[in-house]
Amino acid sequence: MASPMRIRAAAKDGVTEVRVLMSHVMETGQRKDSAGAVIPAHFITELSAKHNDKLVLSAEFGPSVSTNPYLAFKFKGGAKGDKLVVTWVDNKGDTRTDEVQVA
């Protein structure tokens, strides 16, 4: 199964900055292995971030996003100790959810 995400969330001057590093192969389905067989696509398709159960970002990824995707965004509000939950789903139905406290 997928490795945990590394999430940092820091609140400053009323804005919380979130940085997420996911661990995923993000295979495009374009590449071939040494035998010439196409490596099937395997990539994250959807991601959502919730701050105390309120949706703050939803994203859709295509295969053009880099291996081990990085994502940074900011939302207004958020205080130290608040809960931030990030969930992704990939095209094979795998999913992973991690949560952090806003620092």
């Binding site: 804005v15 993000m26 495009t28 703050v56 970002l57 994203a59 295969p63 053009s64 996003v65 880099s66 291996t67 995707p69 990085y70 994502l71 940074a72 965004f73 900011k74 939302f75 207004k76 509000g77």
Partner: peptide
């Protein structure tokens, strides 16, 4: 409430 400022990494 979410700031229109996102960063990510892509393949080209």
């Amino acid at each position: 409430g979410t700031v229109a400022d996102v960063q990510t990494r892509v393949k080209m």
